[in-house]
Nucleic acid binder design. Structure first.
Lengths: 142, 142
DNA sequence: GGTTTTGTCTAAAAAATAAATATATAAACT
DNA sequence: AGTTTATATATTTATTTTTTAGACAAAACC
């Protein structure tokens, strides 16, 4: 399984937004700085996420992005759909294809369906929970 | 989800072997020709599969490869393990990493476990079944 | 024993994709 | 008006995937 930087950065970006207090916006510059994500890359990621309707935007001072949905409503599958190119195009099983090839494609497609199930069972809320856990453990050291 | 050509070719190669009559060997040249897979690429794929102990080899005339296991014992996960580079290295969740990053990695790893389950639930025998189905349907046209 | 058939190994070219950077423009807020 | 923020476009760099090539090694065949 490969997870692109894009997806990883995207999830970290969403996590950062999820941790904001209700209704607040946060800009890319800050997030990029605070979480060490290449700024311009993050910019492109934000655009993709917005295009799929996952974010609200406010321009100008005090603006930035905020989540359009609850963390518990944002599944990994949604995020992958926005950011992993491989998820956008489904496997093409048509045209002049041998049955050897077709059989393989069909089973791979079935596998993909299973994977989609897995990915839609995990949400941003799960990541948030993990995040808070980790921070709690850190507290003990201080 | 991305499936590399390597994996796709690999599965088609294994399918071809699975369809041989018990105990027979078949060479790369033939398979590459019959199933339109770039020969030298297939060669490398065969080597990888052999390295992981999935194939038996016989050199010289009348030689080639044959499966070492029953198709029902060969899972997609095994094949991916041999051929998808991304499957070899698991995500590294150590070192100097922010908890933002760590939380994401941890959940992604959990997702990977789920994916592995999916992939180990499908076998070469499933592909074979599909293959035979497809060929049967074709027969009606002739 | 020599020739053919097959696999093995190493290299590297070519193509595709991913990751990062730069610059200029547009909108919104104070 | 001027600052802050996002948007769009283009370019570069790096990495990975896919493909091709050639020399070598082992087994089988006659």
């Amino acid at each position: 399984m490969k997870f692109s930087k894009k997806t990883e950065y995207g999830l970290r970006f969403l996590l950062a937004l999820a941790e904001l207090s209700e209704g607040r916006f946060m800009g890319i510059y800050q997030i990029s700085l605070r979480h060490q994500i290449p700024m311009k890359f993050l910019e492109a990621i934000a655009v993709s996420l917005k295009k799929e309707g996952m974010l609200e935007v406010k321009k100008g001072a005090g603006g930035g992005y905020r989540l359009k949905y609850l963390p518990s409503e944002i599944t990994l599958l949604m995020v992958f759909g926005c950011l992993e190119d491989a998820y956008k195009k489904s496997i093409d099983v048509s045209g002049d294809i041998s049955s050897n090839q077709k059989a393989v494609s069909l089973i791979l497609n079935e596998a993909i369906l299973g994977v989609r199930d897995v990915l839609s069972s995990k949400t941003l809320a799960d990541i948030q929970k993990e995040y808070r856990n980790l921070n709690e453990s850190l507290m003990y050291y201080i």
